[in-house]
Design a protein around this nucleic acid. Structure first.
Lengths: 243, 243
DNA sequence: CGATCGCTTGAGCTATCTCAACCGGCGTGG
DNA sequence: CCACGCCGGTTGAGATAGCTCAAGCGATCG
């Protein structure tokens, strides 16, 4: 159980460092179980009030909002290590849905114990707030992407982000990583039409920058991708200060 | 358990309710002073590590990111009651800048005391996390706006949100409220060009939905505005559960 | 073996952008 | 007190990125 929770972000000095013994001991108190779900399962529903919070241990998913028009806005992609349900924990209800795209294994927490966490483990509470701040940062970045970049740029940017994210949690193998989504999902995340996403993907392929097919992303030329994405080419790990 | 977090100071029950006596007493411990700045002042700089955190008491401002291309993405608008600098507090550095648009009065906190806050006042820490979750929610909503709505719709939506926000903090007078920004600011927030914003504003004016001129927003017909914005017409205050 | 789903490609349409000019108000300096 | 420059707002015209519609294709599944 301890090892299963290695990727729980509810700790982490640098974000995905192994947990210390006390951290593990603590998590075992807060954790109430493990859950395995099939791809396609809806983990949390918009406007619902889930009694459980999760940490993704394996598999991938996505967070999205459903608009009045019936369209869908993908907020972001869920990778192992992500915390799911902070909103449900701290507000009355979720403001977006969370769906498992592939089969997933999850670490389950009891929402009701969240307050005890704040009372008895201020350091963990601090971590949680840190996570929320990171999330806020990422959303701000997404906003800038949607607000100012062209279709090609958005996709390049998304690929770099996803790849670096994947690398951080050990999902990559060389220049490759699993990316088990549909083109429609990416389109909904980037505010583009599937048709256009498809055409831009083709272009990235032709320019030998990146290929995304059969659920796998291959980054042929990271530098070129970064150039297109208007991104510095060096990765910046998301570390947390020691208070 | 409900009693454990009865008095929640860092802000309020409905989001901008007056503070209770104990709340005030506490704030005076954490608070280190007050600050008045002129319009145009940069309060926090992207990538800086501000030693201070603020709560806006009066005046308005905006948060924005500067992109590599030199363009600007306005993340959101700052109104009285907003907390500024959570990222600086909890991460190493700010990921966006904050600028005072008008003269502002601010409540100043010492960043270094943040950890003490978590240790000694778990209920306050909880509030802070709640604020972060709300912010995350709002950003998710903005994302959906940029991803899926037309220019006219985006502006209508922005007006409704700003107006309701203003109403919550007592900025409105009848159907009017101060909105001391430039068209360029709104354009940068919504991912549109100034030219297009201007044309859509004209249309909203002609359709007698809303007028924004000389720094004042007038909502002529809230229902019509909501219809354009694809929004339920009733307001939903952002309240926090009592744990 | 038909149906469904995701991907691909083409063709025309339009919302929005860029460029460019003009206007009024305001602050500054002569 | 006037003249000038600057800033923000307004409007027109032409260009285009991205959209919608539509059709076809291969794989998977019951």
């Amino acid at each position: 159980m301890a090892t299963d929770c290695q990727n729980c972000p509810l700790r982490t000095r640098p974000i995905f460092e192994p947990m210390t013994a006390t951290e593990v001991a603590f998590m075992q108190g807060f954790k109430t179980g493990e859950l395995e779900v099939e791809g396609g399962t809806t983990l949390m529903m918009e406007a619902s009030n889930s009694p459980q919070l999760y940490t993704a241990l394996s598999g991938m998913g996505l967070r999205y909002k459903t608009l009045l028009s019936g369209e869908r806005q993908v907020i972001n992609f869920v990778v192992p290590g992500d915390f799911i349900g902070l909103q449900a924990g701290v507000m009355q209800e979720m403001q977006h849905s969370v769906e498992a795209t592939t089969d997933m294994k999850l670490c389950v927490f009891d929402r009701k114990r969240l307050w005890a966490l704040f009372r008895d483990h201020p350091d963990r509470a601090y971590d949680l707030t840190w996570l929320a701040a990171v999330e806020e940062h990422l959303l701000g970045e997404s906003l800038a992407i949607l607000g100012h970049m062209s279709g090609l740029e958005r996709i390049a940017r998304a690929f770099v982000r996803l790849f670096d994210r994947g690398a951080a949690v050990g999902l990559t193998r060389g220049a490759e990583m699993p990316l088990p989504y549909r083109q429609q999902d990416l389109a909904d995340a980037l505010g583009l039409s599937v048709v256009h996403v498809n055409k831009m993907l083709k272009r990235l392929r032709q320019e030998r920058a990146a290929t995304w097919q059969n659920g796998r992303l291959i980054v042929h030329d990271r530098d070129k991708l970064c150039r297109i994405a208007q991104l510095e080419t060096d990765r910046q790990p998301m570390t947390r200060p020691l208070i």
